[in-house]
């Protein structure tokens, strides 16, 4: 039974899909199925609206989450009313979603629910905290990559990444796309003190003259990366370590890549989801010697693959797993097998 024992080490966990239909929900169901008999108190919630019975985009059947007795779940009023499980309402939180407030409930038997949850980090944190106060051993968050920047990496202790044929029906391409995410997730994290200093900064451009002196972070007087090209001052006047908490586009990486001190440049970013650049640009930046570090790094504990694509195509799952596993130390599993 892969990674169930690994999961039990953490008090909260997010499951993040690279694309719709990459098997994230299957992964969550797999975990729920295998964990409920372990005598642990489990809670589940989601980021934003999710768990529709029919996928709104591809019109394919999406499995609902199957919960077992005595599990906590948080979902919106609408989805609570549509549940197929006997459960008791414990509380209604003061957090609203477009489809109602969030309901905290506990299941009394086995059945299916649709999950929805808070759509921003602050509220997600408070929901996780609330569930923790109910004496849960493990709180799982269902997330998607499109919404990932809003929640997953900084909030939970561990993360599982779901990838699959929905992303690409071509194995080498699928591996390349997946590895691009895995590579970014594995970006080196800055040291603890610097993490604390930089966490509180959320906009602008900053210089970090010395990575070991966390108390010296200097503003470069540029409001956002969009103004970078217009800046007349030398952005490297305090050295080559630049912190950009905002979005990193192709333009930023291309600009940095063409500097003559590229080999010395360390770009510090908030977390891996802030990179919106094409893989080619990213790898070209790296190839020229540029370095990227992150303030917040998620703890990726497993990769799951779904060889089925929504269009009905089935990839060779052994081939897919071995090709992915060849590129990373993170264990790769096929949940559907």
């Amino acid at each position: 039974m892969p990674f169930i024992n690994e999961i039990l080490k953490y008090s909260n966990l997010s499951i993040v899909g690279l694309e719709k239909n990459t098997g994230k929900t299957e992964c969550l169901n797999y975990i729920l199925r295998n964990i409920h008999c372990k005598g642990k108190k489990i809670a589940v919630t989601s980021v934003g609206i999710d768990g529709e019975t029919i996928d709104q985009v591809t019109r394919t059947q999406k499995p609902e989450i199957t919960l077992f007795s005595n599990m906590f779940f948080v979902t919106s009023e609408k989805h609570y009313r549509e549940k197929h499980v006997t459960s008791k309402i414990i509380d209604i939180l003061d957090i609203s979603t477009p489809i109602g407030r969030l309901v905290v409930a506990e299941t009394l038997d086995q059945g299916k629910v649709q999950l929805s949850g808070p759509s921003d980090t602050t509220n997600l944190k408070s929901v996780i905290k609330y569930l923790k106060n109910l004496d849960t051993d493990l709180c799982m968050v269902d997330g998607a990559l499109s919404r990932l920047s809003l929640a997953a990496p900084t909030v939970t202790d561990a993360m599982i990444l779901s990838t699959g044929a929905a992303l690409s029906a071509n194995i080498p391409q699928l591996v390349r796309y997946t590895m691009y995410v895995v590579d970014r997730i594995n970006l080196q994290q800055v040291n603890n003190q610097l993490h604390n200093t930089l966490s509180s900064i959320s906009s602008g451009l900053w210089a970090v003259p010395d990575m070991n002196k966390s108390d010296i972070v200097l503003p470069l007087n540029i409001d956002s990366v969009l103004a970078l090209s217009k800046s007349k001052e030398d952005i490297f006047r305090y050295g080559s370590n630049i912190y950009i908490p905002g979005m990193i586009s192709d333009k930023v990486l291309l600009m940095l890549k063409s500097q003559k001190n590229i080999a010395d440049i360390t770009l510090i970013i908030k977390d891996f989801t802030k990179i919106f650049a094409q893989p080619e640009t990213y790898y070209a930046f790296m190839a020229k010697g540029g370095k990227i570090m992150v303030v917040d790094k998620p703890n990726l504990i497993a990769i799951t693959v779904n060889p089925w694509s929504p269009s009905g195509y089935l990839l060779n799952s052994n081939e897919l797993i071995s090709q992915l596993q060849a590129k990373t130390d993170i264990p790769v599993y096929n949940i559907k097998a």
Binding site: T86, S87, K88, I89, I90, D91, E106, L108, D109, Q110
Partner: peptide
């Protein structure tokens, strides 16, 4: 305790069916 669901004690018939559901599961 401020929590709510359609309790078994409201209907013995319902309670019986819920037992059957558990067994079926």
């Amino acid at each position: 305790i401020p929590m709510f669901y359609v309790y078994d004690s409201y209907s013995s018939e319902l309670a019986a069916i819920r037992k059957k559901i558990k067994k079926a599961n």
